[in-house]
Simulated assay, not measured.
Amino acid sequence: MESPPWQCPRLQSVYTVSSPLIIDPPPTACTDAEARRILRNMLTAEEFTETKFDLPEGGRWCELVAGDIRQFDPPDGLYGTVVLNLTKALGKHLHGGQSQPASVSDDGGPAYACYELGLVTCRDPDTVRCPPVSVFVGGDAFAEMDREVTESRPVLVIELASGNQRRTGMTDRVLEWHGWGVPCVWVIDSADKSVHVAEPDREVKVRTTGDTLSGDPVLPGLEFPVRELFVEPEWWTR
């Protein structure tokens, strides 16, 4: 039998006369990483972005983990309240002339927040995490806000431990963020209304409703009471 027209040993094993083709032969040579992705039907970050909006609820509660799509349960009712209050607190600080990005960015660029932006934490196979909030400092002004996914690293990732499914894997997510190079992670626990502040190689700090949450050192000057995160707007309760 004539050899297959590509140079990928991992795929040659499925190209035999005795067994039908599992996939069509690639037209060109491929790497081992590409072979694994093809055989497992793994998606790249770009392919995930293209197909995400065809998923349930527009893919809002989906992530890509090692090339596979993971579906999360919708968050609990406090999710919207917390994100709204975070938006207000961050907006007041970041757009009110108080932020000091030069302390964390050599180019002194602006600080800004993105919401549910896909962050590519790994390649070959690709992983795309979509935290509720990620804060960037420096670079081109607001460069990440018009993107669906990015490989740029934020200075702060804010996670919400909303529901058992999210709470169960939160430790691994925090370690993944630190391993990727994110210097600070906030985990907001809607069950006990607390915020866990995690920085690499430091003890986790827990802030409760009687405490003030500080953005130091990544967002110096940012401070607001933890209890404000969990207060429902009056127009929501009417």
Score class of each variant (00 low, 15 high):
44 T>N: 06
156 L>T: 11
45 A>S: 05
18 S>H: 15
118 G>S: 11
102 A>S: 13
35 A>K: 05
199 E>P: 09
223 E>G: 04
143 A>I: 01
133 V>K: 07
6 W>C: 10
106 D>M: 02
150 T>P: 04
124 D>T: 15
212 T>K: 06
142 F>M: 13
70 R>H: 13
219 L>K: 03
61 W>E: 10
194 S>C: 10
200 P>H: 08
1 M>R: 05
234 E>Q: 15
228 E>P: 11
187 V>S: 00
82 V>P: 06
157 V>E: 13
10 R>Y: 11
135 V>D: 01
16 T>H: 11
122 C>D: 15
72 F>G: 07
126 D>I: 04
115 Y>R: 03
140 D>G: 11
144 E>Q: 14
164 N>I: 00
203 E>L: 03
58 G>Y: 05
17 V>R: 15
100 Q>T: 03
86 L>V: 14
198 A>Y: 01
32 D>Q: 03
86 L>D: 15
208 T>C: 13
40 R>S: 15
203 E>T: 07
145 M>F: 03
36 R>A: 15
88 K>S: 13
229 L>G: 09
110 P>W: 00
182 V>L: 02
225 P>C: 08
170 M>L: 08
221 G>S: 05
175 L>C: 08
6 W>D: 10
178 H>T: 14
160 L>S: 05
146 D>L: 08
199 E>D: 10
110 P>C: 06
147 R>E: 11
76 D>I: 01
197 V>M: 05
140 D>F: 12
182 V>T: 12
166 R>F: 04
67 G>K: 04
176 E>C: 12
152 S>T: 02
134 S>N: 09
114 C>Y: 10
234 E>I: 14
43 L>I: 01
220 P>A: 09
188 I>W: 08
104 V>W: 14
95 H>E: 00
190 S>A: 04
99 S>M: 00
11 L>D: 01
46 E>V: 02
188 I>N: 13
58 G>I: 02
150 T>F: 01
138 G>L: 00
169 G>K: 07
159 E>V: 00
41 N>K: 13
177 W>H: 15
101 P>H: 09
125 P>W: 06
190 S>T: 13
177 W>I: 15
14 V>E: 12
109 G>K: 04
83 V>H: 09
168 T>A: 13
3 S>G: 12
59 G>N: 00
81 T>R: 13
76 D>N: 05
35 A>V: 13
165 Q>M: 08
157 V>M: 12
61 W>N: 08
164 N>P: 01
69 I>P: 01
147 R>T: 11
34 E>V: 06
50 E>F: 15
102 A>G: 11
3 S>F: 11
116 E>T: 11
64 L>P: 07
150 T>C: 00
7 Q>N: 08
180 W>N: 03
228 E>S: 12
235 W>P: 06
233 P>N: 06
238 R>Y: 02
83 V>Y: 10
214 S>L: 07
82 V>C: 05
190 S>I: 04
117 L>W: 02
153 R>F: 10
